[in-house]
C-alpha cells in the first residue's frame, strides 16, 4: 500500500524528516509515536502532498506508484485521507455540502457519474449514525464554532464517507473526552478491512487501547528510531520518551 524510502523533507530549507523508511501493507494499522517536534505532523502532511513542504531526497510509493508528482487532490483521489489535527473552518459551507462536493469531485476524477441524491442521503444517514452524529450537525457550517470533539468526529465522519485506502489520523485523540474517544475509535475500527490501512499518529498510548496497532514506530528528530508491536506503546507510556532519545544518540 504505502512504501516510504529514505524520505528527507522540510520547509523553507529547514530539514525536518531525515531519512524515513516505512512500509504499510493493506489491512495493517501502524502507530507513529514520538515527542513534540519529532516530525509526526510533517510526515502526514508530506504524504498528503502539502505544497509548502519540500521533499529533498527519497521517495513515496502508493500502490507501487511514485506519487512525487501528484498534487494533494490527486493523492486524495488515489485514496489517501488525512484526518487533520486542526481542521479548518469554511464559513457558509455546510458539512453535507462539503462532503457531497468531495465525493463527487473524487468520482469525477475517476470518470464516474455523480452520486445520486438518494444514495448520498442514505450514505450520510448511515455514517452519521455510526459516529452518533446528530442530523442538525450536518447542516452547520464546516467546523465553524465546533468544539474540539465535534471537529474530530467530523473528520472521521468524512473518512467514513470517502472510504479511503490509506487513512492517516493525525492526533485524532487530542481534544476528545473519553466518550468521544470511544465513538471515534469505534468508527475507525468498523471501517477497517483487509483492503485498507490506517496510520495513527499520537502522543499517548490511550488511543491505542481502542485502535489496536499491528506495529508501533517511534519517531525522533525526523527518523524512526525504534519499531515494535503494541507492547512498545505500553513501554513508552511507562518510561516516557527520554530513554528512546538516549538510545538514539548513542
Amino acid at each position: 500500500m504505502l512504501h516510504i524510502k529514505n524520505l528527507h523533507a522540510g520547509i523553507e530549507e529547514k530539514g525536518i524528516l531525515k531519512g524515513i523508511n516505512l512500509e504499510v501493507k493493506a489491512g495493517e494499522v501502524h502507530a507513529i509515536m514520538g515527542p513534540n517536534g519529532s516530525g509526526k505532523s510533517t510526515l502526514s502532511a508530506v504524504i498528503a502532498g502539502k505544497e509548502e513542504y519540500e521533499v529533498t531526497e527519497g521517495e513515496i510509493f502508493l500502490n507501487g506508484e511514485n506519487i512525487e508528482e501528484l498534487g494533494a487532490e490527486e493523492r486524495a483521489h488515489e485514496g489517501v485521507f488525512l484526518s487533520f489535527q486542526y481542521p479548518v473552518e469554511i464559513p457558509g459551507v455546510t458539512v453535507t455540502n462539503f462532503i457531497k462536493t468531495a465525493i463527487n469531485e473524487t468520482r469525477k476524477a475517476k470518470g464516474l457519474e455523480e452520486m445520486s441524491a438518494s444514495e448520498m442521503l442514505k450514505k450520510i444517514r448511515e455514517k452519521a449514525e455510526l459516529l452518533e452524529i446528530d442530523r442538525k450537525f450536518l447542516s452547520r457550517s464546516l467546523n465553524e464554532g465546533f468544539s474540539g470533539g465535534e471537529k474530530k468526529r467530523n473528520e472521521i465522519f468524512q473518512m467514513a464517507m470517502l472510504e479511503p485506502k490509506l487513512a492517516i489520523l493525525d492526533e485524532t485523540d487530542s481534544g476528545l473526552d473519553i466518550d468521544a474517544l470511544r465513538i471515534v475509535s469505534n468508527g475507525v475500527n468498523k471501517l477497517r478491512s483487509k483492503d485498507n490501512a490506517v496510520i495513527v499518529i499520537t502522543h499517548y498510548q490511550r488511543l491505542l487501547e481502542y485502535i489496536v496497532p499491528d506495529y508501533v514506530h517511534v519517531l525522533h528528530d525526523g527518523k524512526i528510531v525504534k519499531s515494535g508491536t503494541k507492547e512498545l506503546a505500553l513501554e513508552l507510556e511507562e518510561k516516557g520518551y527520554d530513554w528512546i532519545k538516549q538510545e538514539a544518540t548513542i
Partner: peptide, 19 residues
C-alpha cells in the same frame, strides 16, 4: 484542506466564495 478531500483548487475557491 479542500485539496486533501479531493477538491481541486478552483473548485475549492468556488466553494469558499459561495459559502
Amino acid at each position: 484542506y479542500c485539496n486533501q478531500r479531493g477538491i481541486d483548487t478552483e473548485k475549492a475557491i468556488a466553494l469558499i466564495v459561495n459559502g
